[in-house]
Structure formats: structure tokens, C-alpha cells
């Protein structure tokens, strides 16, 4: 169990990346979504023990990350795949994984070999295992990164934008790999690709401006958007009037728009069942409205 309470991170210059976040994360796949700059990466780096929070408490399997010993104990149970992963270009995949396995505490060479062989097989890199990493494509490097995150049988796996740069087939394979690994473990998956969350997570949080603006299941988020998603087919101009266009499709009889909001009588709109992406867009639109209302209600400064 990961327990986070009143977590705040303020960078030099006063930029508040995390603003009083409190969460509890149990076993299984936990999705983290949000726009760029929402604070997802900062949040995950704090959980991984890479960043010190400015305020608040965080406990990973009972280890307090504020204390050095607690942080080291938590790291012993962690698999981490950073957003911007680098590899040693002159090592091959086997050597790199061997190196990382020792650092993670897999000191038995037989155990290391068994784990590395199995993971290379899982990420389909067995044939390329002896090639220098500098000759790998972006997708292959990503797969090595995934394999190293799974080394040492960690109880907590943190993956930041893991499917960026993967082709659809690899993305699905990776998603399934993570879902398989989630049994009895906690996996925190941060992504921009909402579909990855909808296919693999049963719990998610959405962040915006350093705050958690939604916490619950994907199904609940979808349910919240129900009644706000419409399909409009028109030959006239793009729908407007407070509507958020989610997708645009050119058709023989005009242009089909998938929109969020409440279309007025000008449009021939038919309700559709929302997807998680619609739910996410609906959530962000709600957050925007709330911010706009707050800005409007704040007292205006008199000018002399």
C-alpha cells in the first residue's frame, strides 16, 4: 500500500508542481492521466524516491520516504521506467540487464540469468540480446527499459509514458505484459494515451495543475460523461457554442463531429455512449469551467 498525504512539491522559483495531494494506492494497475505540466512526472519521481517533497508524507509499503533508510528500503522493492530512459550504448541488452539486476539486489548469478532470460523472452529481445544497445531502435530500447523495470520481482513498478514511441503492436504487447505483472503488485502507469488506461487499469487518478481532480474507476469516469457526448453530422461550419470537439471524421454526406457539451437545436445531434477518452475530456472541460468561474468570482482590483 502506498499512502500519500498532503504532498506538496515547490520548485525553485516558486513553481508548485504538486499541491497538497493525498492518495492511497493499493495493488493492481493504477493509471495516472493529465495534461502536460499537470505534475504527473514530479509525482512519480517523488514516489520513486528521486525527488524530495517540499511538504507532506509518503509511505511505500510502510517505509517512510522522508527517512534515508526508509527510502532505501522502498527502492529495494521498486522497478522504475523513467520517461526519458537512457542506456549504456556500449553494453548489450544482456549485460545491461545483468548490471541493473545486481544494482537491484539480485546477487545470485543463477537467479539473474534465469530472470534475464525470461524477461528477454517476454519483451522479445532474445535474438538481439548480444547486440550493442547503440544499434537498437527506439522501440527496442523501450523494451529493454521495460525489462529492467521488471527485474528483481519488484512490489512496486512505476512507469512513466512507457508506450511513447512504440508501434501499436508493441504497445498492446507491453500493456498486456504490465497487466500480467500487476498480479499481487502495484503498478503506477502514467500516460497521455487514455486508451492504455482504459484497457489495463481499474483505478485511476487525473491530475491538473498539481492537484488530483479525479480519483476512481474508469467506469465511473465514463459514467460521469454520459449524456454529454454527442455525434453531429453537418455540412455547415464546425459546431460551436461551448462544445468541445473530441474527433472529426470526413464522411460522404458531410463532416461527423464527436462533441462534448450540450448542443443546441441548430444541430442534428444524437447521443452516443462515452469512452474513457470522452470521460477524460469531459473532466478537463469541467476543470476549465471551474477555473474560469473562480477567476470571474475573484474580486477585481480597482485601478486608480
Amino acid at each position: 500500500m502506498i499512502t500519500i498525504s498532503h504532498l506538496t512539491k515547490t520548485y525553485r522559483g516558486g513553481v508548485k508542481a504538486i499541491d497538497g495531494v493525498s492518495l492511497e494506492i493499493g495493488t493492481g494497475m493504477f493509471g495516472l492521466v493529465g495534461p502536460n505540466g499537470a505534475g504527473k512526472t514530479t509525482f512519480m519521481r517523488i514516489i520513486a524516491g528521486l525527488l524530495k517533497p517540499t511538504a507532506g508524507e509518503i509511505s511505500v509499503f510502510g517505509n517512510n520516504l522522508r527517512a534515508y533508510a526508509g527510502k532505501q528500503a522502498a527502492k529495494a522493492q521498486l522497478g522504475y521506467l523513467p520517461q526519458d530512459l537512457g542506456l549504456y550504448p556500449n553494453l548489450n541488452a544482456y549485460e545491461f540487464l545483468d548490471y541493473m539486476a545486481i544494482l537491484k539486489g539480485v546477487t545470485s548469478s543463477a537467479d539473474r540469468k534465469r530472470q534475464i532470460d525470461m524477461l528477454l523472452e517476454q519483451v522479445r529481445l532474445t535474438d538481439a540480446a548480444k547486440r550493442p544497445l547503440k544499434t537498437y531502435s527506439g522501440g527496442m530500447k523501450r523494451r529493454v527499459g521495460i525489462a529492467q523495470a521488471l527485474l528483481g520481482n519488484p512490489r512496486l513498478i512505476i512507469v512513466d509514458e512507457p508506450t511513447a514511441g512504440l508501434d501499436p503492436e508493441e504497445r498492446i504487447r507491453f500493456r498486456n505484459l504490465l497487466a500480467d505483472a500487476a498480479a499481487g503488485r502495484t503498478i503506477i502507469l502514467s500516460t497521455h494515451i487514455v486508451e492504455d488506461i482504459s484497457q489495463s487499469c481499474n483505478d485511476l487518478a487525473a491530475m491538473r495543475g498539481g492537484k488530483v481532480i479525479y480519483r476512481g474507476s474508469p467506469q465511473d469516469l465514463i459514467a460521469q460523461a454520459r449524456g454529454s457526448v454527442w455525434m453531429i453530422t453537418t455540412q455547415a461550419e464546425r459546431p460551436n457554442g461551448g462544445l468541445t470537439i473530441v474527433s472529426t471524421l470526413q464522411m460522404a454526406n458531410g463532416v461527423q463531429y464527436r462533441v462534448l457539451g450540450n448542443p443546441d437545436g441548430r444541430y442534428d445531434a444524437s447521443p452516443v455512449e462515452p469512452s474513457l477518452e470522452d470521460g477524460y475530456m469531459w473532466l478537463m472541460a469541467q476543470a476549465n469551467d471551474q477555473l474560469a468561474r473562480l477567476a470571474a468570482s475573484s474580486p477585481k482590483r480597482e485601478t486608480a
Binding site: Q72, L85, K104, G105
Partner: peptide, 14 residues
Amino acid sequence: QYRIRELFNSAPVS
């Protein structure tokens, strides 16, 4: 430079 430091820092290496 190789962006590998994050991995070292996330491992239990003092």
C-alpha cells in the same frame, strides 16, 4: 549524459 542516473537513483544503491 546517457540519462542512466535516474536508474541508479531508483535502485537501492547508496
